[in-house]
């Protein structure tokens, strides 16, 4: 088959809502788009372990410690599922990690912000995971089979993540003055970066066109962001937290909230490497990756020797 025939057959399948599987022929651009998106997703899960991991040893109760550990462990697991999905596209985990280290592959911008207080653990779970879930639910129907199946599993496991974050915030809002201040402060710092997680406005989104045609992406950045805002505002009200946006108003006509403009300058600056923690997150990953090299070598050497 020539390239055009392959493309046509591929698009027919996509239009019929059939999943694309690893051995199916697919346009090279589709494959590369998927590698970029899935690996970014995988790296985000893995880098995302750091800000929360920062609080494991300081969690304020045995229960909180267990929940946080189990949650971060899930994130590691999700990174693993996604790396596996990506590997079905003919790229190895070694290469994927290398792309992360050289800056060729990105991870979610949100993890370049610091987790400063315990309330940040609440805010991350509630807002960051909350935003991620909105996106991930829509990805359960993405066109690439291994990615879609990974997402189904991830969504199932993540359903407790957002609840645990919200529970932390709710408990703090019922607590002392100091706890309430801590919770509101975390809300103020995490709200806008959470909205940025959905990416640029649809009108400025460079990769969206192909992603829609190929049904990798099912809903637009702005649609997903709106969905997140609409469900979160009510949750904030219930526990007495204020959304740090003076322009936030209910819009009866569109049956959703209007909100203030996102600081896109900050968004670009952080994406381009100049956020509070970009360097720290990368250094951490490189350091422990390098420190683990002798262990991986030993395991490989032992296996080689023993299979003789």
């Amino acid at each position: 088959m020539n390239a055009t025939a392959i493309d046509n057959l591929f698009q027919q399948k996509i239009d019929l809502d059939l999943n694309i599987e690893p051995k199916d022929q697919m346009p090279e651009k589709y494959r590369l788009h998927l590698i970029r998106q899935i690996s970014q997703h995988a790296h985000s899960e893995v880098i995302g372990m750091q800000p929360e991991g920062n609080w494991i040893t300081r969690a304020p109760s045995l229960r909180a410690k267990q929940i946080l550990l189990a949650k971060i462990q899930d994130e590691g697991g999700h990174g693993l599922y996604l790396y596996s999905a990506c590997e079905t596209l003919g790229i190895s985990r070694e290469e994927l990690i290398d792309q992360l280290h050289t800056g060729k592959a990105k991870y979610s911008n949100i993890f370049n912000y610091p987790a400063l207080t315990w309330a940040d653990i609440g805010a991350i779970g509630w807002l960051v995971d909350g935003a991620a879930i909105v996106n991930q639910v829509s990805l359960q129907r993405t066109s690439y089979g291994p990615y879609a199946r990974g997402m189904v599993r991830i969504c199932k496991e993540e359903s407790f993540h957002q609840r645990q974050g919200y529970e932390i915030m709710a408990n703090m809002m019922k607590g002392t003055e100091a706890q309430r201040e801590m919770a509101q402060d975390a809300m103020n710092r995490w709200w806008w970066p959470s909205l940025m997680m959905f990416g640029p406005h649809d009108s400025d989104s460079p990769h969206s066109g192909d992603a829609f045609t190929w049904k990798i992406k099912r809903k637009s950045n702005d649609e997903l962001r709106q969905k997140f805002i609409d469900k979160t505002v009510q949750q904030a009200e219930v526990i007495g937290l204020t959304i740090p946006d003076d322009e936030l108003r209910w819009n009866e006509e569109k049956q959703g909230y209007d909100h203030g403009e996102i600081n896109w300058e900050e968004f670009k600056r952080v994406i381009n490497g100049n956020g509070p923690c970009n360097k720290q997150r990368m250094d951490h990953h490189k350091k422990y990756h390098a420190e683990g090299a002798w262990v991986r070598e030993a395991a490989a050497a032992y296996a080689k020797e023993n299979s003789k």
Partner: peptide, 22 residues
């Protein structure tokens, strides 16, 4: 799904830790 491991015992254990936590 899949896991990375250097030998069969490690593969079993990694599979256990990755896919049977619930």
């Amino acid at each position: 799904g899949s896991v990375h491991a250097s030998d069969s015992q490690m593969a079993l254990q990694n599979a256990r830790d990755t896919y049977t936590r619930r």
